[in-house]
Design a protein around this nucleic acid. Structure first.
Length: 843
RNA sequence: GCGGGCGUGGCGGAACUGGUAGACGCGCUGGAUUUAGGUUCCAGUGGCGCAAGUCGUGGGGGUUCAAGUCCCUCCGCCCGCACCA
């Protein structure tokens, strides 16, 4: 018997699938649709294990749903604009376009080697002018709909990448990509009005039932809705200060007003107050590096200003500049109520300000505030006409009063900021706008789209190459025809990925979206990718689809009905005695210790960590595929570890998977050879047992795949393989069981499945075969094993017919020798029988 | 600080609404075949015990005939957000 030759087999079946065009979407128009999508990759050069895991899961779902009769859309594309291409261009002098497309060629070949069931006819890259021209069109649509605007803004400037960053791209004061300390800078920039949809984006989360709660919570926090009252304090001596509060009920407990150091009034006051200026400068410094250390300490500066309490003209409050007040939230000014806000309390204690409790919990009306503010529910005290009211009622009353006097109004405030989309980068989608010295900002005419990137980009000196490329930059004004300049900023690449999934519905459409095709295919039924996109990509996409709906491009509500976030791929790390990282390929394990290959140099084994170049613990997928084949690496990715958790790649595990591939092949081959040796005798117990095992496996695997529990599906398949191995059933039964096994592994190890299918004498392709159906009669067993306990301790088991009567079970249980021994002659006080489950005898 | 998750053999992990804890895989031990090794096959593999048994799901307590699962409490780890008024 020949061994299974994965390499030979995999190439043949990949060719067969392609020839039969089995993965084209739209082949079963009358069938229900199913859209499976994995987050498309950035073409960095080669695929890595993270891609392998992601695309394997998606492919299993696609093949499984196809077998179940769905018309499946499973496309692939390339998130092809972005910084690495520019860096490569700078370092190696290549054209970023050439570099990108070469990478795409390489990676596409690698993905094909994995045997993915992708409809390649829908492939595109976001850097194709054929794609970005539509994006420019959408930009103009959004512009016309008032969802794009230009604003002079204090932006986050990344000095290393030489670009601005959106707030969410700044992590701990550093650029999400470069890690450089972010600086503040004023620039005129393009924004998308995502805040327009804040409420809708928030409410929409409730309907996303097939999203991880974790992601929904993250988005909810990110949007950060709070309802409250915005109102004005009159300054003694003229002017006013506007504050926002979610606790207007505590207004009689106010003891100060605090401004953000970045508040315009702070800056104004600082001009005449050098000490305040120093204080503000200090606060700015605290904003970055020492943040963590300084967070605890609340500090402020008394400006000497006084404001009048809005509900009592004879009451004045001091105005501070305080380091814990954020300019970016609310109005950049607050009133402090120390008794009911921890920050305000810390502040008040430090500066000796009054602390007057105004809300008391039931049963503790004489509430005293110590070191902790009281933030719970209760009734108002010390608050004149509010006394006795519940918190909510008091909020309403204060809000109504303040609104009545015109001092303020109820508002909803969001943490979410508008999306800054301008990037000072040459390798991105050009923003189709023109700056005319006479007409101002003018959109490019639609017939002139796409605004193409120049063929050559020269990376000399600082700044954006598009800015110094006059053939790109200089143009005519679409309005007056005079000399004008193009916008040289390009779109944030998150714009590219905010609608690509909808373009897949019809990549040939002359308009950005074919609304009929979008209606057919979207929403994506199952989207799969990394948790790192929980906020940025997923929120932007949800916004963008809503913006497109506003512009009449689609009726779609949410883009992704189901979301799954898979874990990372990890590997043990190794270091030499001098601390240098050592790659796994250079490591040899002997008796649990690691040595440098072929030498006596012992290495230090470190913890398993996410595969990364810096720790040199990367395993190249192509090496594994070359060694064992795609089915083995796919099987590994699905086995053992639940898909949402981090998985550890191990050599032993990979070998185990490879052995299983061979084992199935052997089972199938032996199944054929036994033709004469075991004559068919269909109705023996062994036959029935094997049929039952098969149908149990079908039921279990189906259920597990539906729920994306790949690791459990794998275990079920092992179980079935074990049962087939051990079975004494006749040839016909064995063959039937093997066919079932082959169909069940089809989505996971598609090449092996085809090869076995053919060897079992089947025609056609597993890729086109229907998913097996479990016969409920066979899944349900006629005999069950009951546990027998005495005082809750297991003393034995019983084999009984399913559905046996309680007294029958009780009698049989009492008859067990082990039970009699445990009873020690005592009479049962009580016997609990749960039919088909357990008998518990209590003495 | 707030929010979420997790803690089960040597390892990855199973265990549906409380009902035989450790399925399945890796590793390991012994044996058989082949052999240069790997492969393959058989048996075993939570701890203690010759056995009957007994202990065992991070620690402690509780509810229950019965707890990995429910409740209280403590400990540890991971992730997210972080002065959001």
């Amino acid at each position: 018997m020949a061994r299974y030759n994965a390499k030979d087999s995999e190439i043949r079946w990949q060719a067969a699938w392609e020839a039969a065009n089995v993965f084209a979407a739209g082949r079963a128009q009358e069938a229900p649709k199913y859209y499976v999508l994995e987050m498309f990759p950035y073409p960095s050069g080669r695929i890595h294990m993270g891609h392998v895991r992601n695309y394997t899961m998606g492919d299993v779902i696609a093949r499984f749903r196809r077998a179940q009769g769905f018309d499946v859309l499973h496309p692939m594309g390339w998130d092809a604009f972005g910084l690495p291409a520019e860096n490569a261009a700078r370092e190696k002098g290549v054209n970023p376009r050439d570099w990108t497309y070469q990478n795409i060629t390489t990676m596409k070949a690698q993905l094909k080697q994995m045997g993915l069931s992708i409809d390649w006819s829908r492939e595109f890259a976001t850097c194709d002018p054929g794609y970005y021209r539509h994006q420019q069109e959408l930009f103009l649509d959004l512009y016309e709909a008032g969802l794009v605007y230009r604003a002079e803004a204090d932006v986050n400037w990344d000095p290393v990448d030489g670009t601005v960053l959106a707030n969410e791209q700044v992590i701990d004061g550093r650029g999400w990509r470069s890690g450089a300390l972010v600086e503040r800078k004023k620039l005129s920039q393009w924004f998308f009005r995502i805040t327009e949809f804040a409420e809708e984006l928030l409410n929409g989360l409730d309907e996303l039932e097939r999203w991880p709660d974790k992601v929904r919570v993250m988005q909810r926090n990110w949007i950060g809705r709070s309802a409250g009252l915005k109102f004005r304090f009159a300054r003694v001596g003229g002017g006013q200060i506007e504050v926002f509060s979610t606790r207007p009920d505590t207004l009689f407990g106010a003891s100060f007003v605090a401004l953000s150091p970045e508040h315009p009034l702070s800056a104004e006051l600082a001009q005449k107050d050098p000490a305040l200026e120093r204080f503000i400068a200090e606060c700015r410094r605290l904003g970055t590096a020492e943040e963590a250390i300084e967070t605890a300490e609340k500090r402020g500066y008394d400006t000497g200003l006084k404001v009048v309490h809005p509900l009592d003209p004879n009451w004045t409050l001091p105005v501070y500049v305080a380091n814990f007040v954020l300019m970016g939230y609310g109005t950049g000014a607050i009133f402090g109520c120390p008794a009911h806000d921890q920050r305000d309390l810390d502040f008040a204690r430090k500066y000796g300000l009054p602390v007057l409790p105004v809300v008391a919990p039931a049963g503790n009306e004489a509430l005293e505030i110590g070191a902790e503010a009281y933030v719970g529910p209760g009734r108002l005290i010390n608050s004149r006409f509010l006394n006795g009211l519940e918190v909510e009622a008091a909020k309403d009353k204060v809000a109504a009063l303040i609104e009545g006097t015109g001092q303020g109004e109820r508002t909803v405030n969001y943490r979410l900021r508008d999306w800054l989309v301008s990037r000072q980068r040459p390798w991105g989608c050009p923003i189709p706008m023109i700056k005319c010295p006479r007409c101002g900002i003018v959109p490019e005419k639609r017939e002139n789209l796409p605004v193409r990137l120049p063929e050559e980009l020269t990376f000399k000196g600082a700044g954006n190459p598009l800015d110094s490329d006059l053939s790109f930059k200089l143009t005519r004004c679409p309005k007056c025809g005079g000399d004008a300049e193009r916008e040289t900023d390009t779109c944030d690449t998150f714009v590219d990925s905010s609608w690509y999934f909808a373009r897949f519905a019809d990549v040939t459409a002359k308009t950005p979206l074919n609304s009929a095709a979008v209606a057919r295919w979207l929403p994506v039924d199952q989207y799969i990718g990394g948790i790192e996109h929980a906020i940025l990509h997923l929120l932007y996409s949800r916004f963008f689809i809503r913006a497109l709906r506003t512009c009449g491009h689609t009726q779609l509500g949410e883009p992704f009905a189901g979301l799954f976030t898979q874990g990372m791929v990890c590997h043990e790390t190794y270091r030499s005695q001098d601390g240098a990282w050592v790659e796994p390929v250079e490591v040899e394990k002997r008796e649990g210790k690691a040595f440098r290959k072929g030498s006596a140099e012992e290495l230090v084994i470190g913890p398993s960590e996410k595969m990364s170049k810096s720790k040199k613990n990367v395993i190249a997928p192509e090496v594994i595929i070359d060694l064992f084949g795609a089915d083995t690496i796919r099987w590994f990715m699905l086995s053992d570890t639940p898909p949402e958790r981090d998985i550890e790649w191990t050599e032993e595990g990979a070998e185990g998977c490879w052995r299983f591939v061979q084992r199935i092949w052997r089972l199938v081959s032996e199944g054929l050879n036994n033709d004469e040796a075991t004559p068919p005798h269909p109705e023996t117990d062994a036959d029935l047992a094997l049929a039952r095992a098969s149908h149990r496996a079908i039921a279990a695997v189906t259920e597990d795949l539906e729920a994306l529990r790949f690791n459990r599906a794998v275990a079920q398949i092992y179980t079935l393989a074990n049962e087939i191995s051990a079975s004494k059933a006749g040839h016909t039964s064995r063959r039937q069981a093997l066919l079932t096994l082959v169909l069940l592994i089809g989505p996971m190890m598609p090449h092996l499945a085809e090869e076995c299918w053919r060897h079992l004498g089947q025609t056609g392709l597993v890729a086109e075969a229907p998913w097996p159906k479990a016969d409920p009669e066979l899944v349900r067993s006629s005999e069950v094993t009951l546990a027998v306990q005495v005082n809750g301790k297991l003393r034995g088991t019983l084999e009984l017919a399913k559905g046996a009567a309680k007294d029958e079970a009780e009698k049989a249980a009492l008859a067990l020798e082990a039970v009699q021994r445990a009873l020690e002659g005592k009479a049962p006080r009580r016997v609990i029988v749960v039919p088909d489950r357990i008998v518990n005898i209590v003495v």
